[in-house]
Computed example of a mutant assay.
Amino acid sequence: MEDLITVIVPVYNREKYLHETMESILNQTHKNLEIILVDDGSTDNSLRIARYYERLDKRVKVIIQKNMGICVDMKNALAISNGEYIARCDGDDINELDRYEKQLKYLKENNYDIVGVYVQSFGDGNDVAKRGVKFFINRPIKNDYDQYVRILTGGCINGGCIFAKASVLKKFNPFHKDYGLVEDGYLYIILHKNGCKIGILEEVLYNYRIHHTNTSLSTGNRKKCVDKYFEALFRFLFNEKLEKYKNIVVIKREDEEKLIKDTFKNYFNYLNVKFVNEHNFEDFIQNEIFNYKSEDTIFFAGSMFFNCVLDILKYRNYKMYENLFLLVDCYY
Rank of each mutant, 00 (worst) to 15 (best):
M1A: 11
E2D: 13
E2S: 06
L4D: 04
T6H: 04
I8P: 06
I8L: 01
H19K: 04
E23W: 02
S24H: 06
Q28L: 03
I35D: 00
I36Q: 05
V38C: 02
S46K: 06
Y52D: 00
Y52R: 04
K58L: 02
K66H: 07
N67V: 00
I70T: 01
I86A: 10
R88N: 01
D93K: 08
E96I: 07
D98Q: 05
K102W: 08
Q103S: 04
E109G: 06
N110C: 06
D113C: 09
Y118K: 05
Q120D: 15
F122R: 05
G123P: 13
G123W: 05
D124R: 03
G125I: 03
K130E: 02
G154Q: 12
G154H: 13
G155S: 12
G159N: 10
V168T: 15
V182F: 12
L187G: 05
N194R: 11
K197V: 11
S216A: 15
L217Q: 14
R253Q: 15
E257A: 13
I260Y: 05
I260K: 02
Y267R: 05
F268P: 01
L271W: 01
N277C: 13
N277G: 10
E278N: 03
H279L: 11
E295H: 13
M304C: 09
N307R: 14
I312K: 14
L313R: 07
K314N: 14
N317L: 15
L326T: 11
C330T: 15
C330N: 09
